[in-house]
Write a protein that binds this DNA or RNA. Structure first.
Length: 263
DNA sequence: ATGGCCTGTTACACAGGA
């Protein structure tokens, strides 16, 4: 089974690129982030034409996640609220960032973690609160599904080698010690980075700023991840970043990341 | 030190991204 995570930065702008990519990379489940469209306007037909089932959880202008699968997903859940009590969720489902479904015995969780904006921003507090609730959410999911694949745009680079430059990392959003500690605490429930099972070296990234010609200079960050429970980590066969779509005209600023396992 | 670029909005600048 192949599962891909891709922040497309607007599905309507990127539609042809995503369908073209799917035609040559027919994965079992494609997890999208930053679809930036309400559900009524999501281009479902383009995917059903390719034989994919579409599960969408979007909002106007910002955020939005979706899952496309060749076989129907089971037990599709939108938001933290599907698993966590309403009073505990509070406003953390107001932005559409969480969708999940089951394929075979694997629960796949597709996340768009808040960016956080800047250290002094309310959005940064929101990011940390969101990650704390994510830990509770994933703890429940893992108890129900020992085969858990948590993927998405995490907006955090865990290690220095996941960033092209180490400069100012302690004060830079996506690399601050508090963000890293908070994400490591989430992963401590029993999740491991699929990419690092196969690739130890740095210099491999999944996001490059549109500005300053960052992609051509490979000035990127590795912030899109597949985190796997022990049962899946043991059997995962590959985890790869496809940089090719980042070369295309009018690309997303993120590249798709794919894991493969037999489960 | 700052902004560089891109997307969506009911827009002709802004918010948000990262």
């Amino acid at each position: 089974m192949k599962v891909t995570s891709w922040n497309v930065n607007s599905i309507r702008t990127r539609l042809t690129q995503v369908t073209d990519w799917l035609k040559t990379h027919p994965v079992d489940v494609l997890c999208l982030q930053e679809t930036k469209v309400i559900d009524e306007d999501f281009p479902v037909q383009a995917f059903t034409d390719l034989g994919y089932n579409a599960y969408i959880y979007g909002q106007k202008s910002y955020n939005g996640v979706a899952m496309l699968s060749r076989e129907p997903l089971r037990e599709v859940q939108m938001g933290f609220g599907a698993v966590i009590d309403e009073h505990e969720v509070g406003d953390l489902d107001a932005q559409k960032r969480v969708i999940s479904g089951v394929m075979g015995d694997v629960r796949i969780v597709n996340l768009y973690v808040p960016n956080g904006s800047s250290l002094t921003s309310d959005k940064f507090e929101y990011k940390l609160k969101w990650l704390a609730l994510l830990k509770k959410y994933l703890t429940k999911q893992l108890a129900l599904y020992p085969q858990l694949n948590v993927c998405g745009d995490f907006n955090i680079a865990l290690e220095s080698k996941d960033i092209h430059s180490d400069k100012n990392r302690d004060t830079q959003v996506m690399a601050t010690p508090i963000e890293r500690e908070t994400l490591r605490d989430v992963l401590s429930i029993g999740l491991s980075d699929a990419y690092r099972k196969f690739t130890d070296e740095g210099g491999h990234y999944s996001w490059w700023d549109y500005r300053t010609n960052a992609f051509a200079r490979n000035m990127g960050w590795r912030i899109d991840h597949h985190y796997l429970s022990e049962d899946l980590y043991e059997i995962v066969e590959s985890c790869t970043i496809d940089v090719e779509p980042r070369r295309w005209e009018r690309p997303s600023d993120h590249a798709p990341v794919t894991v493969e396992y037999v489960a």
